[in-house]
Design a protein around this nucleic acid. Structure first.
Length: 876
RNA sequence: GCCCCGGUGGCGGAAUGGCAGACGCUGCGGACUUAAAAUCCGCUGACUGAAAAGUCGUGUGGGUUCGAUCCCCACCCGGGGCACCA
């Protein structure tokens, strides 16, 4: 498309010196012109340290630049952000609206594998497309702050943060059964596995024991939970996070084993039911299984453990209804009743939660009850319903009550008994209060090429001890190790001075197939001489450099998951080029945390949990000055296809923003997206709907511009506007401001349509009225607003034209229609002074022709008068 | 099973204790036109009625209130999440 050059369009003041010469509303000519104007004038470059205005930092979740281009859901999300930013700017805020690219990740790598084009190049192309598309929407993005998670300057700091986590003991290596997806050739985090399938692609996953990096997010479980109370987030998401973190308070109790020195520790939330513990269960993976198993039970136990191991987790949970287990042959001693109780092995107890062992109280736990019934284990009631109406509650009885059959604790309430029993156990050294979380540590490594390499090398124990200088300064208290072929490998950090650690060049991005990423094949990069003081590296093919500190090392071949980069991009926007600090504290203080963050709810327990974890940690180590990363979060709803179903290629109901902009223009699309319904709701696209909005914009154009492209004769400085219009005009200024403030964009637009209907009835209109209106419209439909603003003789840009004020006096009507209700039912209405006294209103109501029949022959019992609204006469 | 969110015309939605259905779409009627498109004007919850008007109506059933889409209780339905978490 051709962009008219500004110079050619110059006309003498006051008209047409920048705007187009369109006679009809032609978004395809108008929009590119103003987009260029904004770019040429750096209109949206945010100024650091502007203390003359309050700052406003608004962020939408940055996109993954896929090969499919922008989705209409992005359009919705970014329109809402842009609209808010333009509104805040009109109010006088120093606004920052940044954008970036979540550019590491699987689809790009898969494209690279399929096409042989390097992921870096695939990313570059996709980013170019996305950027062009975003600019065609007319978003006021400050591109000087563009971030890309794959830029070396960005990767360096992602690695730096990992280094801090490592140094502070929050990153460790564990060989553990993890979700492995054969199809994707990588392991996945718990959060990325849904119903036994990969979140991305829906491929089957299975458990495999692999060496993995894990981040100790559980150390922040309590902080992550507590922060939820103080932030302005959608309740559903907070609730989901609370659930996911799953804090549960109880006690750890240690049971002695009969005829054995070992003890068995369990976690329970119901220490009050301890007297009712008639058996114990340990998970099949429990380390004590071997010792607990007696000779007689050995073969049965081994068979059971083997069967459990081969079951996928999906099978294990699918069979939830049908309990299975095997007796170990050993007995434990109930520490309060002294009873000898059997120890069972059953897969309904999970090794990953609590201690991997439980005390089973069949009378008061549904699962234990099912198990006890099936295996004919005694069931002893120890809790009674508190306010028993004579009848005993049926078993299993799983709520609090009063203790029975509980020795000296009989008669206490559950609550009292919990404290008393734990206190007793604590004195004996076999119990204590304890808290458990469902949240697991975050599996942080992936076997892919297109991700951040870990700033870690592996060395021998002897070489580990040679660490000094900057390398030693970054070591955790306890070394991170793993055993490979009987040899223990030690992790040394690649220190900050050597970052970023870049990916090796290769043309084969496929995983190596042995559980290692493509990096496992990049020998020159992988096998190195490492300086254990400075962190420098040289290929191992070269001779060993001179010096005590040089040791033989192998680099870590895992890469970080895609979530890593998005954990801190909100910081990089504030200080996008810094190579000294993660974020300059002065800039950090100026911009603070985003005042607004919008994105889909699908990241509730992924990005929205991970990023706060990193941020809280960075705050703790003094790397950032803000305690809370996202004080205010909004979720936009999904834009569904016209058939009300989720948009997808297979359903053939995808709406492409490029097509919509081509047909209707960006202003119409932006406006329609905001008009469809509440931002947070899912709502179906409707082609007729956007036509309605386009009609609205054309009407506006015709009110201002006549068929020759001149200002319409109707717009005149000596226009006489009707009182009715005057009122609507000021109501509109008030309502639109209030609605923008509350994020209720659909009703703001409805009000603007009311204004449009009102102006259609006017003979003449003041230019000032049109200009007021353009300023209200500009945040949503910025191009047409700029165009008409300038054609009306104002200097561009309308972006800095401020926000119109309404006249409160214009809103007040002397007389209003008062609803007349009889016994609560609307019967009539009457015109009356707004603040008429009750007596007058009542007299009018009683005399009203339509209300009268309902009052005839009845006695008035009560009158409720709400001045200006209704009068309700209660009569019978 | 547990947790969260929701249920209003033909459709998207508005109204958070005061005349339900703003605004938009659709549909119907009209104006302009040789005609069509575009544009403009009017009507458009259901039922009864020629009309005036009346009755019903915000998932269902109760409750609070002069008055309930709105608050409370119970239930039904839909969507999302969690699910042997001791």
């Amino acid at each position: 498309m051709t962009i008219p050059r500004a110079r050619e369009r110059m006309r003498p003041f006051p008209y047409f010196h920048m705007a187009t010469t369109c006679t009809d509303y032609e978004p395809s000519r108008i929009e590119p012109l103003w987009q260029k104007f904004w770019a040429d004038n750096n209109t949206f470059v945010a100024k650091d340290f502007d203390t003359t205005r309050p700052k406003y930092f608004a962020m939408a979740m940055y996109p993954y630049p896929s090969g499919h281009g922008l989705h209409v859901g992005h359009s919705e999300n970014y329109t809402a952000t842009d609209l808010l930013c333009r509104y805040k700017r009109a109010l006088g805020f120093n606004v920052m609206q940044p954008m970036g690219w979540d550019a590491f990740g699987l689809p790009t790598e898969q494209t690279a594998v399929a096409t042989g084009v390097h992921p870096r190049e695939v990313t570059r192309r996709n980013v170019e497309t996305f950027k062009r598309q975003l600019n065609q929407h007319g978003f006021g993005i400050d591109w000087t702050r563009e971030v890309n998670t794959t830029d070396p300057g960005y990767v360096r700091w992602t690695q730096w943060i990992f280094l801090q986590l490592y140094k502070h003991g929050l990153a460790y290596v564990d060989e553990r059964p993890v979700w492995w997806c054969q199809e994707l050739g990588t392991v996945l985090a718990n959060e990325e596995v849904i119903d036994g399938k990969s979140e991305r692609g829906g491929y089957p996953v299975e458990k495999r024991a692999l060496r993995q990096w894990v981040l100790r997010i559980t150390a922040y479980a309590d902080k992550l939970l507590k922060r939820l109370d103080g932030i302005d987030w959608p309740e559903a998401t907070k609730s989901k996070q609370r659930n996911w973190i799953g804090k549960s308070e109880g006690a750890e109790i240690t049971f002695a084993l009969d005829g054995c020195d070992e003890t068995l520790t369990v976690f329970t939330t119901r220490p009050d039911t301890l007297y009712g513990a008639t058996y114990m269960v340990v998970a099949p993976e429990h380390p004590l299984v071997g010792k607990l198993t007696t000779a007689a039970q050995k073969s049965a136990v081994e068979a059971y453990v083997k069967a459990a191991a081969s079951k996928s987790d999906l099978d294990r949970t699918d069979l939830a209804k049908d309990k299975s287990g095997v007796f170990s042959g050993s007995y434990a001693i109930n520490p309060v009743s002294g009873a000898k109780i059997p120890v069972w092995i059953a897969d309904y107890v999970l090794m990953g939660y609590g201690t991997g062992a439980i005390m089973a109280v069949p009378a008061h736990d549904e699962r234990d009850y099912d198990f006890a019934v099936k295996f004919e284990i005694p069931i002893i009631r120890v809790i009674e319903k508190l306010d028993a109406e004579g009848k005993e509650a049926p078993l299993p009885f799983c709520v609090y009550g009063k203790l029975v059959n509980s020795g000296k604790h009989t008669g206490l309430s559950s609550k009292e008994a919990k404290a008393a029993i734990v206190a007793d156990l604590e004195k004996r050294g076999i119990g204590k209060l304890s808290v458990n979380y469902k949240l697991r540590d975050w599996l942080f490594s992936r076997q892919r090429y297109w991700g951040e390499p870990f700033p870690i090398v592996w060395v021998s124990e002897a070489d580990y001890k040679k660490a000094s200088g900057e390398v030693a300064a970054n070591l955790p208290k306890d070394p991170i190790t793993f055993v490979e072929n009987g040899v223990t490998q030690y992790a040394l950090p690649v220190p900050a001075s050597q970052l970023p650690l870049q990916l090796p060049e290769t043309d084969n991005f496929q995983p190596s197939g042995t559980g290692e990423s493509a990096l496992g094949r990049c020998t020159d990069w992988l096998e190195i001489w490492f300086n254990a003081a400075t962190g420098e590296a040289k290929s191992a093919k070269e001779p060993k450099p001179a010096g005590e500190s040089w040791v033989r090392a192998r680099r870590e071949t895992n890469t970080m998951p895609q979530w890593a980069g998005s954990c801190w991009y909100h910081l990089r926007y504030v200080d996008p080029k810094d190579d000294k600090y993660l974020i300059d504290p002065k800039l950090n203080n100026y911009w603070g945390s985003p005042d607004y963050y919008i994105g889909g709810p699908e990241h509730a327990v992924l990005h929205l949990l991970y990023a706060p974890f990193w941020h809280l940690f960075l705050y703790d180590i003094g790397a950032v000055t803000t305690a809370e990363p996202y004080p205010r979060l909004v979720h936009q709803g999904m834009v569904l296809g016209e058939n009300g179903e989720k948009m997808s290629k297979s359903r053939g109901n995808v709406i492409n923003p490029d097509d919509v902009i081509k047909e209707h223009g960006a202003d119409a699309m932006r406006m329609y997206l905001m008009f469809m319904g509440p931002l947070e709701d899912d709502k179906p696209w409707n082609t007729k709907g956007i036509e309605g909005v386009t009609r609205f914009l054309r009407r506006l154009w015709r009110e201002v511009i006549d068929a020759d492209g001149k200002i319409s004769a109707k717009v005149s400085a000596d226009a006489k506007e009707s009182a009715a219009f005057h009122k609507v005009h000021h109501e509109t200024i008030k309502k639109v401001g209030e609605d923008y403030e509350k994020g209720r964009y659909n009703t703001a637009i409805a009000q603007m349509m009311i204004w449009m209907n009102a102006i259609g009835k006017e003979e003449t209109v003041l230019p000032g009225s049109i200009k007021d209106f353009l300023r209200l419209l500009a945040p949503i439909a910025p191009h047409i607003s700029e165009e008409l603003w300038e054609r009306l003789g104002e200097a561009p840009s309308i972006v800095d034209a401020g926000w119109p004020k309404f006249d409160p006096a214009a809103l007040v009507e002397e007389s209003v229609m008062l609803g007349i209700l009889v016994n609560g039912k609307p019967r009539s209405e009457v015109k009356i002074a707004r603040d008429a006294p009750e007596a007058e209103a009542l007299a009018l109501a009683k005399a009203d022709e339509r209300a009268k029949p309902f009052l005839d022959g009845k006695t008035i019992r009560k009158v409720v008068y709400v001045p200006g609204r209704i009068i309700n006469i209660v009569a019978n």
